[in-house]
């Protein structure tokens, strides 16, 4: 059992309205490892996390977490399964009416019957792990973006989950915060024996911590492998993404009529 992947995504199809977002995605997330899912903006990476977390339902295909089909579970069973998952949101998504301490203590209070002294100790331990034990009295509005994300991380690991999902953890962070988050994700994964899924388009940071990488574009897995073994030049789209080229298979221009015609065609003005 422990050799089988913790998360399996099988033949996933998903569309929003007319627009197809995923057309047959297959992923296997091994236990105890950091798996990165990368791809250009707008390829539905966050949507993929929401599908794994059971907030969205795929049109076709299955998501298995530790053998449970996420979308076949009852609402109650799904909420029970989610206690074994933590998710770090892009915005942090801290509860704005609770202090830092209460935010981190929230999962403990609602899911356990622990005495207050124990809740306090556990909360302070989690805050210590992200280096914000001293900020416990602050309100979310008083935190910088990087600090808010670290508090959210402490909250996500409050119940010692098996699986943690990071949604764009590095976006909008200064180099110091980025470094801190890279360190934290790696350290927590090792120390707590977590399985991590990092969704990101920050190539350097992500490749430096990932054990395995999936690259997604156009609703499909374009390439996958270990960071060193990832054959980036096999597919032009992957190559463009990894090397950060402005134009290529992913065009610089949004679809438009011919430039020449558009400029010279004055009919629209009359």
């Amino acid at each position: 059992m422990s050799d089988s992947p913790l998360v399996e995504v099988k033949g996933l199809h998903f569309s929003r309205g007319e627009k197809s977002i995923f057309a047959g995605v297959e992923l296997q997330i091994p236990r105890g490892k950091i798996t990165a899912i990368m791809g250009p903006s707008g390829t539905g990476k966050t949507t993929l996390l929401k599908l794994i977390g059971g907030q969205l339902t795929p049109d076709v295909g299955r998501v298995l977490i530790d053998g449970y089909d996420v979308h076949a579970l009852s609402r109650k069973a799904l909420f029970t399964l989610r206690r074994r998952m933590g998710m770090l949101f892009q915005s942090g998504a801290l509860f704005s009416d609770l202090s830092v301490f209460e935010n981190v203590a929230f999962p403990l209070r609602v899911h356990t019957e622990l005495p207050e002294a124990m809740v306090r100790d556990l909360t302070l331990m989690k805050l210590q792990a992200v280096g914000l034990r001293g900020a416990r009295e602050l309100m979310p509005a008083e935190l910088s973006g990087g600090m808010a994300r670290r508090v959210a991380l402490a909250r996500a690991i409050a119940l010692d989950p098996d699986l943690i999902l990071y949604d764009e953890p590095f976006v909008g962070q200064d180099p110091i915060s980025k470094g801190v988050l890279v360190q934290l994700i790696k350290k927590l994964n090792q120390a707590l024996g977590l399985t991590s899924i990092v969704v990101s388009h920050d190539i350097q940071e992500t490749l430096s911590i990932a054990d395995y990488v999936y690259v997604i574009a156009d609703g499909q897995v374009m390439a996958h492998g270990t960071p060193d073994g990832l054959d980036v030049d096999d597919d032009p789209r992957v190559s463009q993404f990894v090397h950060g080229e402005p134009d290529g298979p992913v065009p610089f221009h949004y679809p438009a009529p011919e430039y020449f015609d558009d400029i010279l065609n004055q009919e629209g003005l009359q």
């Binding site: 929401k50 907030q55 909420f79 998710m87 949101f89 998504a93 801290l94 609602v110």
Partner: peptide, 14 residues
């Protein structure tokens, strides 16, 4: 809008 409802769901609270 600030994803607080979603994050609450992910924590396992309805």
């Amino acid at each position: 809008a600030t994803e607080q409802l979603t994050s609450m769901e992910m924590i396992g609270v309805d």
